[in-house]
Design a protein around this nucleic acid. Structure first.
Length: 690
RNA sequence: GGCGGGGUAGCUCAGGUGGUUAGAGCGUCGGAUUCAUAACCCGAAGGUCACGGGUUCAACUCCCGUCCCCGCUACCA
């Protein structure tokens, strides 16, 4: 298959490039940049340089429950939360040269209009199913409670401030009805169950469409990680998914009698791409619909792997259901970027924040862009280290790229007063260099067409290597005295390479490319011109060179490492903070518990589970079956004969088809590790605890 | 446990439908050089291609099994 066939680019007249909408409840870090914004920006800039019609879309995702929670905690409005982070995020993007044609936000009226008419159209076409369910309701505040708005005692670890979707203490995911003693976060009251009505999108109806379109149609041109993930989801079977929910922050459901209901954020967010395009159309007085509805438009979504299901399954189904939209041609999702061997984590402050980087390394946006592209998690998770950052700056950007440009420009000023010398008769070495030069634009372009950004970047650097090799072999500084004419040709060729470099590096290193073009005093070069031998005409004056990159010292790297180390220390002391004591209980309550010394008689792993052991314990009074989630810490063979404490009068509960009569008492440390609790002396089975 | 992705030189990664001595960049070592931010250029060392089987004249590449890492998912009374 040829490149053209593989990308199918020949049949496209315009490109619609989207980048995942960052969620406006926090700033942006290097993981976001490496996974989504650097690659999409490179792609968009490359297409523009080729003279393609491209619309590069971004925007902030500003709805959803986490934002309302954050607002509550900080005692400000949700709008104030998203205003703060939207501005911060947009500012970071601008400073890093992410060249959006439009950067919008989902709290704008244009988005509310777009999303609600999108919903309405699907509603009118009968694409939804309606369902009534029971959910927790806060009488005092007269509203339904999102999972996060319900708090109570975690049935797993007993933590009293667990949320309806997850326990922050033990990490277990929960549903609101699991909570013991549930309370509304809003009023503190016990919430009531109340009926509510919602609309669902029957994703399962679109399975055949997905199979044909992706599993058969994109078997070879989509990345294996993306394709595999989609296949996994489709094979597991899709379920109808609620598109509305009871909340007051979001796009209002545009139907009668639906006060207090908004579109689910997963439904409204991707429509944000379309709203942004409409906004662009309105502000620029241009038709926007062709970017989304014309079959000769190529739609590409840049996302991280956490977003695959939304962009490959759900959003396409929405578009298909609506009927007039095109589907994405490719979704080149990246994996995750780690930092110094650990997962990037906002809550643990284990991240390199863009706004902090800009303070610590002013003017070095291209360095980070370069490093993040070179180490982009294209095929698997990758690790960012400051040592690697330093090495790539010092021995690649500076030593190869910067050095070649510098030596060429310095020599031009030294020998020819900064004027481009003429090109005389070509010797074999010159010809060879020029021939190689000519091949670069197509080679880099091919890699970019296939979303191989690391490869493209490496090729770009190879051009600088070519320049260095050429100069070193030609040795103009040795022969200038005797053969000044020859030196003219050599520097002419070197300068042409510099000029090409200024074009071909532009998608990756826009600031550097600008600076270089400024020094060479050229502008508006197109991709196709690169690789040519007459980008600079003889006699053309170039400016005094300044350095493109500067060395990054050990001390700077050490400072960043120290910063991270500090985060780690702080986390550690945080982790040592024990969970607070629970509310007092009466002695009566305590004495209701019947805890007995028992012995494990037999133990086996419950099949098809990771954590469960099925135990037979001797309580002294009887032998009974207990299921316990300790498989990660105790091997079944090794605990037979062990004394344990058993909560014997706990209501029986069926787990994975096995009836469990009681619960083993375990101590748990901060890492979640479990340990048996046993009496110090060897007491008989049946001994009680009081 | 199920599903998906990945495990190739010290590090980061390439290696269509199996075929001569497994590649690149960085790092290391040696050489050469001085136009250049001691940078460039040349050369070398370095790999049982996670492990064990199998198919084949031939496997990093195909099949089966095992282990490890990441993600989704079930389970934790």
């Amino acid at each position: 298959m040829t490149n053209e066939e593989k990308t199918g680019n020949a049949r496209f007249k315009r490109y619609t490039v989207t980048s995942a909408l960052p969620y406006a409840n926090g700033p942006i870090h290097i993981g976001h940049l490496a996974g989504v914004y650097v690659p999409s920006d490179i792609y968009a800039r490359y297409l523009r340089l080729k003279g393609e019609d491209v619309l590069f879309i971004g925007g902030s995702d500003e709805h959803g429950v986490p934002i309302t929670i954050k607002a509550r905690n900080e005692k400000i409005t949700p709008q104030q939360v998203v205003d703060k982070y939207h501005n911060m995020i947009q500012g970071s993007f601008e400073k890093f040269g992410i060249s959006f044609d439009v950067y919008s936000r989902t709290s704008r009226p244009v988005h509310h209009e777009t999303a609600s008419s999108f919903f309405k159209k699907l509603y009118e076409k009968g694409k939804f199913i309606e369902k009534e369910t029971e959910q927790y309701y806060d009488e005092e505040n007269k509203q339904f409670l999102a999972d996060r708005y319900i708090t109570g005692t975690c049935p797993h670890c007993g933590y009293e401030k667990a949320f309806g979707d997850q326990c922050e203490n033990c990490g277990t995911s929960l549903s609101p009805t699991d909570l013991i003693n549930p309370r509304s976060v809003l009023s503190g009251n016990k919430p009531q169950m109340k009926k509510t009505r919602h609309w669902y999108l029957p994703l399962n109806d679109y399975e055949p469409m997905l199979r044909e379109w992706i599993l058969e149609g994109h078997k070879h041109d989509w990345k294996p990680n993306v394709y595999g993930q989609v296949k996994s989801w489709v094979d597991q079977g899709l379920q109808p998914r609620a598109v509305t929910r009871d909340l007051d922050w979001g796009v209002k459901v545009p139907l009668e009698g639906t006060d207090g209901k908004v579109l689910y954020v997963w439904f409204d967010a991707p429509i944000g791409y379309i709203s942004a395009t409409r906004e662009w159309g309105m502000t620029h007085g241009k038709p926007w619909e062709q970017y989304w509805k014309s079959p000769d438009s190529k739609l590409v979504h840049f996302i991280g792997k956490d977003n695959i299901v939304f962009h490959c399954i759900i959003f396409p189904i929405m578009l298909k259901a609506e009927g007039s939209y095109i589907l994405p041609e490719n979704v080149p999702a990246n994996e995750f970027l780690n930092l110094e061997g650990d997962k990037i984590s906002t809550s643990r402050n284990w991240a390199v924040w863009l706004h902090e980087y800009l303070e610590d390394f002013p003017g070095k946006q291209d360095v980070l862009r370069y490093v993040l592209c070179a180490a982009a998690p294209e095929t698997k998770d990758n690790d960012f280290t400051w040592k690697d950052f330093q090495a790539r700056n010092n021995s690649e950007l500076l030593a190869i790229f910067g050095n070649f440009v510098n030596r060429t420009l310095v020599l031009t000023h030294k020998y020819f007063e900064g004027k481009v010398p003429s090109c005389g008769p070509l010797e074999p070495g010159d010809k060879k260099a020029l021939e190689e030069l000519a091949g670069f634009p197509a080679r880099i372009g091919k890699s970019l067409d296939l979303y191989r950004f690391r490869e493209a970047l490496a090729e770009m650097m190879n051009l600088a290597r070519l320049g260095n090799r050429y100069l070193t072999e030609a040795e103009p500084w040795k022969i200038f005295k005797n053969e000044p004419e020859r030196v003219k040709t050599i520097l002419n060729v070197s300068l042409q390479i510099c000029a090409s470099l200024s074009v071909l590096s532009a998608p990756f290193l826009p600031f550097t490319a600008n600076k270089l073009q400024d020094m060479l005093d050229i502008q508006d070069m197109k991709w196709e011109q690169a690789g040519g031998k007459k980008l600079l005409t003889s006699g053309h004056s170039i400016k005094k060179p300044s350095l493109l990159f500067e060395k990054i010292e050990d001390s700077q790297v050490q400072a960043q490492m120290d910063k991270l180390l500090k985060s780690k220390e702080e986390n550690k002391s945080k982790a040592e903070n024990q969970t607070p004591f629970k509310a007092p209980v009466s002695f009566d309550d305590f004495s209701k518990l019947d805890i007995r010394v028992s012995t494990v008689v037999s133990a086996e792993k419950v099949t098809k589970t990771k954590k469960l052991l099925k135990l037979e314990v001797d309580t002294g009074l009887d032998k009974r079956t207990v299921v316990s989630g300790i498989a990660q810490y105790y091997e079944p063979e090794k605990i037979i004969g062990k004394k344990v404490l058993l909560l014997a009068n706990l209501e029986p509960k069926t787990i994975k088809g096995i009836k469990s009569h009681g619960m083993l008492l375990m101590a748990e440390n901060n890492d979640g590790e479990l340990s048996f609790v046993i009496p110090e002396k060897s007491f008989n089975n049946g001994s009680s605890i009081s």
